[in-house]
Design a binder for these strands. Structure first.
Lengths: 205, 205, 205, 205
DNA sequence: CATGAATGAGCGTTCATTCAT
DNA sequence: CATGAATGAACGCTCATTCAT
């Protein structure tokens, strides 16, 4: 490998690292203020540069949130697919999916917030068609799991799968609204607390 | 009563009715597109008038969402207070609050959506200080209820009140995201389904 | 004269009186805030009616200031012409013109203020062509008077007529900026003070 | 001095120069059309740019006239203070002040026009409090000078200082209404003409 | 005569985006 | 890579004006 080649690779890596860093900043600002209400100047300020300079790295404001969301979903599905690949019973799979979700919140909270708050509005834009696709896969995965667990006795037999699916789906992401990394509970512990609630309910026995 | 007096009253009533009508339209559009992303022209279009005409009725775009949210919260607390005034055990009160919440979703879904999506961003504006106040009252009401029920055996003794409070708070409003009035389930039936989940959990016995 | 005829005349007179009253109000508001910066709502408020109602009386905002200024100039030239018709020496005529001007200020201060502040901007509008005409007549009157007085020894022989004309012209209207009706000096006394300054200067002898 | 430092200084200087240039253009347009009647697009047109582009340089239309007027008054008082510091008799000081005023008109006529036409309306805005302050200083300076000259025999003993102050104050700025730079008379010569009138009056001896 | 609701053009301002340097 | 000046479309809002009542 020539030194020239090595330099070029180093530059490309540095460039990718800078993009990732800027996207992290953008995600934080978008999540804090809302995507539509955030100006690219605010993102640039947070990144320590001027508004126009962001356009060296990104085509548009839209491409930033696109990259944030698509990156988040790619990583998320990698984890979900690993859980599904592990096999096991319905409850075990459910535990795995919920835990993976809380880990995703821990890993990239701003992206989760954006996904919750903005996905619905963005979905009408063809560019963000993958949001609807991901949502459909999500629904199929969960209703399938719930129906299987309901049949095999893992879950209550009278579960209304669509209702419980929505309940779980939303519940899973809610923690992003108040979770603060480095708090007293680790993501896995929080997952346990939530699972206890969801699986057992709150009624005294 | 003089005819003049009657006319003045009629005009005031008609004006109030028009405001309410326009606020309903505005709430729908804000909820559908997001407050920041909605232009006043879009609201006006939906109301069948020109952008500037809205300003005969309202001071600003901000005053519209202000009136929507404050009106929503006022009506909501009227219902909550009625439930609390009825007394009864912790589970009964919880059932009453959840049912009142689902009725509020049925009555004014767009306002609930706005409350969920925009309250956090608006709260930093002094004009919307009442959002934080209402949130604090909400937290006190729920944590008090949960702790009482936990002590008297209505609920599990090991409940983590702050965690469960957030869980309930968010769960309660989630249905606004997908509920469609006139669907197969009435608000009270949906409330029952949710209560079953929350109280019993989903695990098979 | 039939009673019907008398009624019609009475109605026309009442209408004219109302117009005059409204124009007086409009002139005050225009003078206080500036014509362009004044909204017709502000004029209407001051007149105790709603914005749209003014349009029963006047075609437009522009027609209001038109009527104010043309009425002011008509009355002013009536007075100036009376002074000129009296004849007499240059100083006596100058005293008459200055006194008539201060009386005009006393009679309709807002119109004088508007004339000073707005005439220059309005003059480019063909509708206000009479402003330029009046200004030209004014210049001819004054330069003629000054040159005559300079020749016959009433005024200094070395007077630069165009310079002094502008000086007098502007001086004459300045008092409108600070004059308050009902103050300690009558218009005629103020005229005397100004004339003493203009005729004798301020240097000690 | 490092090259970097030199560049930064050059950029700051260039920026300041551009601001000054734009403010000069704005002052001309405001003076010609009136501040309220001028649109920022008209200012931008005159500056060869689009309306929105002005906001790169200035916060608002109001901040433009603010900077024009405050800059004008700062420079004016620098000159006045220099005259006062020179000392000398009352007549000499009066001559110095009047000459400085005509030089200010020559230097920045649009600012003088704006000061005359807009100061009164702007003064009610707290942002322009310095206008009233400057006016008060102006009054104290002139009435003090006139009273002193009246006592020591430089001016007529029967001078009514407040009346003459207003007369001088207004007279001094009137020339801005018709003065054209590069005309047949220099600012100092115009000052001489005005001083002859004011000091001696126009009456023949 | 006056009201009150609406119009529609245009205003001051914002902001995503471009590009020469 | 980043800057800084500019663009141009669109935004929230104002206001002179209209007109049915």
């Amino acid at each position: 490998m020539s030194p020239r080649r090595r330099n070029a690779e180093g530059a490309a890596a540095a460039r990718a690292a800078r993009r990732t860093e800027l996207l992290g900043t953008a995600a934080e600002v978008f999540a804090a203020r809302g995507y539509a209400a955030t100006t690219v100047r605010e993102v640039a300020d947070a990144a320590g540069m001027l508004g126009g300079s962001l356009y060296y790295h990104f085509d548009s404001k839209e491409s930033m949130i696109d990259e944030i969301l698509s990156g988040f979903l790619t990583a998320l599905w990698r984890d979900y697919d690993a859980v599904l690949a592990r096999g096991g019973g319905a409850e075990q799979t459910l535990r795995g999916l919920v835990t993976a979700s809380f880990q995703a919140i821990d890993r990239d909270r701003p992206a989760v917030v954006l996904y919750q708050n903005e996905a619905k509005h963005l979905a009408s834009n063809p560019r963000f068609g993958y949001l609807a696709e991901s949502g459909a896969r999500f629904r199929e995965m969960w209703t399938g799991l719930l129906e299987q667990g309901s049949r095999d006795g893992s879950f209550r037999a009278d579960l209304d799968a669509p209702v419980v699916y929505r309940f779980i789906r939303d519940t899973v992401w809610l923690a992003a609204g108040w979770y603060r990394p480095g708090g007293r509970l680790s993501p896995d512990e929080i997952a346990e607390q939530y699972l206890a609630l969801v699986l057992e309910g709150i009624r005294g026995r």
